[in-house]
Structures are given as structure tokens and as C-alpha cells.
Lab assay of single mutants.
Amino acid sequence: MATGGRRGAAAAPLLVAVAALLLGAAGHLYPGEVCPGMDIRNNLTRLHELENCSVIEGHLQILLMFKTRPEDFRDLSFPKLIMITDYLLLFRVYGLESLKDLFPNLTVIRGSRLFFNYALVIFEMVHLKELGLYNLMNITRGSVRIEKNNELCYLATIDWSRILDSVEDNYIVLNKDDNEECGDICPGTAKGKTNCPATVINGQFVERCWTHSHCQKVCPTICKSHGCTAEGLCCHSECLGNCSQPDDPTKCVACRNFYLDGRCVETCPPPYYHFQDWRCVNFSFCQDLHHKCKNSRRQGCHQYVIHNNKCIPECPSGYTMNSSNLLCTPCLGPCPKVCHLLEGEKTIDSVTSAQELRGCTVINGSLIINIRGGNNLAAELEANLGLIEEISGYLKIRRSYALVSLSFFRKLRLIRGETLEIGNYSFYALDNQNLRQLWDWSKHNLTITQGKLFFHYNPKLCLSEIHKMEEVSGTKGRQERNDIALKTNGDQASCENELLKFSYIRTSFDKI
């Protein structure tokens, strides 16, 4: 039985969820670079991206490699990797027998973001014989899940209580170790020597080791999670996991709180800001991140802002960003909400898709409305799209047979046209069989910064309504002859009103 693990408890099935942008060198404390989270699957090609990484700022997932063999891993080693800020997950990587050479110096898994409450997941690794993470000293947050690894031993010899604050939620089941077939031998045991430290858990006094050649490092209890030197002297209180010299914040392997210019500090002093819960960055760093993602459509890219001495992905609820200094300031009234469309555009074809934009005031991208039916549609669209004030790209209304009016965009005031449909149009209306009105132009103002209007096959939309939009939106004169079809717009509506004058002759039985 794995020490510190839980057996036999019912657990939810383990679901495996399925960018080499360097964020800056980590400095003297770390020998390499800070790398983003990685999802490495199918083959070993991307694994080489770990070569210079000291910190993975995010998670590391290595999974679904069915053609790899043990010899493929023999020359692979990433000794610079010290810390993973989120979680480490391995799933069905064939041929991998140990992690001792792959990650010989991995010391800390912070667990800032977890995989279903777990910071370390080893699942269905069919050839893994031992973990071998002999320098792993601290899992700051989260638990361990090690399950269905039929060859995995050296679990009962690990004292997880020396690595985690609590072992109650560890789930370590259905491994070879369960069948008591392992016969784990710690260093020196074969020669009758006791080389590794022994600890007591559940009444068992057991030597602690990761492999037959690597003991588990056990520091004096007084050192807590700070770690200790090879001689057993406690590291500085700002260290986490390990250090090369005692009581020196510049000799830590990793930091308990924050890293700044080669030393570990309790908090980031001005003019620095907390970033990702582990390091200090200056304003320029946060500003660069903001600008890199301002026009990016890459998933996970955030326009970072500053709030409460932190550089964070977005302002919290009730705050909006001051564009001059990136500071989050309290909103006066309802907060603006910028919604970034991942692929640059979004099609609204149902109430469900409209709900995804609920509360958005600025759309960074283009909207395509293609709704053919739905219950209580006008009210639903207004509830979900009615706060949109600005669209950076274009607005396209296409084959939306259920629409009679666009009044559900009740606050839309600006279409920038930074991206144009077919390279020309910022407003595009095609084949809307029941569209009769755009907006009530006596109450609604709309500016279209650039781009043209396109109207074709809107049989109940009168040309007068379209011409009014040209005047109000500032697009009059931009359109070419064929942009607004004269014969297919309003051709099934009563669009022309003329005053009919009647004269009559009164007659009676005795007068003409």
C-alpha cells in the first residue's frame, strides 16, 4: 500500500482533458527560462521544448504516446526543470519506465491550478516501474492521483506527508504495488545497510526511497516546507523545498512566496507586481503582455491589467481597466465587458449561442446573426445582446428569417469595421425574408467608422429604411451602385405612401 494514499474509496472516473512563447529569463536562482504550460502528445517531438525550461508557468501534460519505446527515452533528460506552477499529468506514455532521468531536479509542483483537485496525476502508464522524482520536495496545493499503472512499484516507500501538507485526498490505487509483488529495495538494503531515512506512518517504520538508488530526502521537522541542505541544516524561511546553503534567500532552489532578481522575498516591493503567484514583474512586463494579447485571437491570451499590486489576466467583477495605466478602477454604474472572439468572429444561430455573449459591452471581433427560429426570440436576444455598444469588426445579418427588427441591439452605437466582410463591408444584410426595420432612427444613433453597407434580398425592408441608415451611420456616399439592390429590397412591402385627393359631386333626387 502506498504510504499516505487512500484505498478502496469510491472515486469519480478520471477524465483526461485534452506555445513556446518565453516569458522571460528567471535569473540567477533558476538555471534556465520560464516556459508556458505545455500539452505534449502523440510523439516526442515537442518534448524537446523543455530543454531550457527551469519553470513551467502553467501545467505540463505528457500523454497518448503509443509508439514510443524505452530506448526512445534513454537520452532524454531535462535537468534544468525545477518547478511547475500548476500540475504534472502523465497518461498512456508507452515505453517510459521512470522519471528519474527525465526530470531529475523537479523540486516543486505548486498546484496553482489543479487537474480535478490533483497536482500530480500518473494514470495508465503501462510501462512505468517507478516514479523516480527523487528531488520532489513540495506539492504546495492539491493532491496526488496514481492509478492503474500495472508495473509501478516504489510507492509504499514514499512518505507523501513530507511532500504535501495533507495526504487525506491522495488516491493511489490499482498499481502493481497493490499486489505486494514489488519487493522494493532501498539503497544499501541488499548489503544489509540502512542508507535512507525511515519514518513512521500508520504504525509502520519504513525506509523512504524513490528507487533502488535514490533515497527520499527527509528534512528535520523544524525546517517545515522550506527544505534543508545535504547536511540537514534548514533553508531560509522564504525558500521552498530545498537550498544549497542554509538561511540564505539567494540560495533557495525555489521560493515559498515570490522570486525577485535572484532572491526569494515575502512580497513584491514597489515598483514590482505579483505575477502568477510566484514571481515579481515590473510595469513594462505587464504592459507588454497586455499589448501582445490586445489584437491576438490565441486562446488563453489575456490583456493583463494591474489590481491590488498584482498583474492579473482581467479586472475583477465591479472594476474596469483604465487604459492609460492598466489599473483596475471601480465602475460607475454597470461595468464594461470586452469579449474577445477566439477566431475573430462568432455566429449567433440560437439563443444558446447568444447567451455566451451575455453582459458583453464591447465585441472584439465580428458578429454573424443567422437565426431561423426560436421561442420568445426578441426578448431572449435583447437579454443577451442588448448591452453590446461596440463591435470592432463587422455585423452580418444573414438568412435570419425569424427577425423582424434589429432593435434587440438596443445599445449598439459603434461598428468600427477594423475587419470587413469580403474585404469591403462593415454591415452586411443578406436574404432576411421578414426583416422590416433596422432601428427606430428617431431614437437610435449608430456610427460606422469604416467599410460599406450591403443589402440584398431583404424583400420587406424598404429602401427608405436603408437610406436612413446611410445618413445616420455616416456611410452615405461610400456605397457603390450594386451594394444596395434596388429590386430585391422592399419588393414585397408597401414602401411608397402617396396622399390621394378626392373630389365629389353631391346629387339628390331633384338636383344634379
Rank of each mutant, 00 (worst) to 15 (best):
F115N: 01
C223R: 01
K217Q: 13
D184M: 15
D261R: 07
F283W: 04
R162F: 06
N325S: 15
P70H: 13
G203S: 09
C35M: 01
I312R: 08
C331S: 03
F258Q: 04
H48N: 14
S161V: 07
N179Q: 13
P336C: 06
K148Q: 11
K193I: 11
S166R: 11
R145I: 08
G188F: 14
W160T: 01
C234L: 01
N242M: 09
K67G: 02
S237I: 08
E231P: 15
C331N: 10
I172S: 09
F283P: 10
I82N: 08
E57G: 04
V144G: 02
E57S: 08
T199P: 06
Q204S: 13
R69K: 05
E314Q: 10
C280W: 00
D178R: 09
T140E: 03
Y304W: 14
R113Y: 14
G142D: 02
N170H: 08
A190Y: 04
R110F: 05
C234S: 03
I139F: 03
L63Y: 15
K129G: 10
Y87C: 00
I146A: 04
P269T: 13
L96S: 01
T68L: 11
C293M: 01
A190D: 09
V126A: 15
F103W: 04
L89T: 05
D177V: 06
N105H: 05
A198Y: 08
C234F: 00
P187R: 06
R141A: 03
F66Y: 13
Y304R: 04
M137P: 01
M125V: 01
L81D: 00
L327E: 06
L289S: 10
L44P: 07
S296F: 13
K191N: 15
G203R: 11
G333D: 13
P316Q: 04
A254D: 08
P104K: 02
L44H: 09
L164C: 15
L29S: 10
V55I: 14
Y30T: 03
S324E: 14
L76I: 01
I163H: 01
N42K: 04
I146F: 04
T211G: 15
E168V: 14
V265K: 02
T229R: 09
Y118L: 03
Y272G: 02
N42H: 05
F275S: 03
L327N: 11
H59K: 15
R69F: 12
P271M: 01
P187H: 13
T267F: 02
L64P: 15
L131G: 01
L289M: 11
N149F: 01
N257G: 06
K80I: 05
L164P: 01
S237F: 08
I201R: 04
K100V: 13
T329L: 09
C328V: 03
Q303T: 04
F285K: 03
N308F: 11
L233G: 09
F285S: 03
N195G: 10
W210Q: 14
N175K: 11
G262F: 09
L155V: 10
L63A: 13
P316K: 04
N322G: 07
N150V: 06
W210T: 05
P336Q: 15
Q287G: 15
H291R: 09
K100P: 01
T157A: 13
D277F: 08
K67W: 13
V108M: 14
P79G: 07
P36G: 15
H290F: 06
S166F: 09
M137L: 08
F283K: 15
K80A: 09
L260H: 15
H28Q: 06
M65A: 08
L50N: 02
N242D: 11
S98W: 01
N242H: 07
R145V: 11
L164Q: 07
N325G: 15
C301Y: 02
N242Y: 11
D184W: 11
I139L: 10
L29H: 08
T267I: 01
C243A: 00
L240Q: 06
G232R: 02
I201K: 05
K193T: 07
K80T: 10
N195S: 07
K224M: 07
Q245R: 05
E124G: 04
A156W: 07
R46M: 06
M83R: 00
N149E: 00
K129F: 14
I146M: 10
P249K: 02
A190M: 03
T229F: 15
Y259H: 15
C215S: 06
S161E: 14
R113L: 12
L60N: 00
S244M: 15
T329Y: 10
S213H: 09
D277L: 12
D169N: 15
R298M: 07
D86G: 07
Y94N: 11
T157P: 08
R298S: 07
Q276D: 13
C280V: 00
G37Q: 10
L164N: 06
P31G: 15
C215F: 09
I146P: 00
N105R: 05
Q276A: 13
L44M: 04
R162K: 12
G58R: 00
S237K: 04
M83A: 02
L332A: 15
K217D: 05
Y87S: 01
L44V: 13
Y118S: 07
D277T: 05
R279V: 04
L106W: 02
S161K: 08
H212S: 07
F258Y: 08
C53D: 00
L50R: 02
T229M: 13
S225I: 14
V167H: 05
L164T: 11
R162H: 11
D72L: 10
F258L: 11
N322Y: 06
C186Q: 02
F258N: 02
K100R: 07
S324D: 12
N175G: 10
L81H: 00
T45S: 03
N295D: 11
L99A: 06
V281L: 04
F258V: 12
P336T: 09
T250D: 15
S225N: 14
K67N: 05
L240A: 12
N309H: 13
Y118H: 04
N138D: 08
P104S: 01
D261P: 05
R298P: 05
C234M: 02
I222T: 04
C286A: 02
K129C: 09
Q287N: 06
D75I: 07
D75S: 08
V173T: 02
E238K: 04
L327G: 06
G95R: 05
F115S: 07
Q276W: 03
I122P: 11
D159A: 05
D39A: 11
D277G: 07
V173R: 15
C335M: 07
L60C: 05
G227T: 04
N242F: 10
P270Y: 10
S166H: 03
D101K: 03
V121T: 09
P104E: 02
M38F: 02
T229A: 09
P269I: 13
S323K: 05
D165G: 11
A230L: 12
T85W: 01
P271D: 02
P271C: 01
L332M: 12
C331K: 04
D75R: 05
R298L: 11
D288L: 12
K217S: 13
G318A: 03
E180G: 04
Q216V: 06
A190P: 10
Y319A: 13
L63N: 03
M38D: 15
R41S: 07
F285R: 03
I222N: 07
L81G: 00
L327D: 15
P187A: 12
D165M: 05
R92A: 07
L60P: 00
L29A: 15
F115M: 04
L174N: 13
I109D: 00
E151F: 07
H236G: 05
E130V: 10
K129M: 11
C186I: 04
K224G: 11
T68I: 04
H302G: 15
C335I: 02
V55D: 01
P104M: 01
I139T: 01
S166M: 14
R298W: 14
F258S: 05
I158F: 05
F258D: 01
S244Y: 04
I56D: 00
D184C: 09
Y94V: 09
K292C: 06
C215R: 12
V218T: 09
C335H: 08
V121Q: 01
V34H: 05
H59A: 13
T107W: 03
S77G: 07
Y87N: 01
F66S: 08
G300N: 11
L99R: 00
K148R: 14
C255D: 00
K294L: 03
I139D: 01
I158C: 03
K217M: 06
N179H: 09
C335P: 10
H274V: 09
F103L: 05
N309G: 08
D288I: 03
D72R: 01
C286R: 00
I146G: 00
T211E: 15
I163E: 00
V34T: 07
C293L: 06
P187S: 10
C223L: 02
K80H: 14
C328F: 01
P270I: 05
G241A: 04
S77N: 10
I306G: 07
S213K: 06
I84M: 01
P336M: 08
V200K: 02
T211Q: 04
S244L: 08
E207A: 05
C215P: 13
I84Y: 00
C252Q: 00
H291E: 13
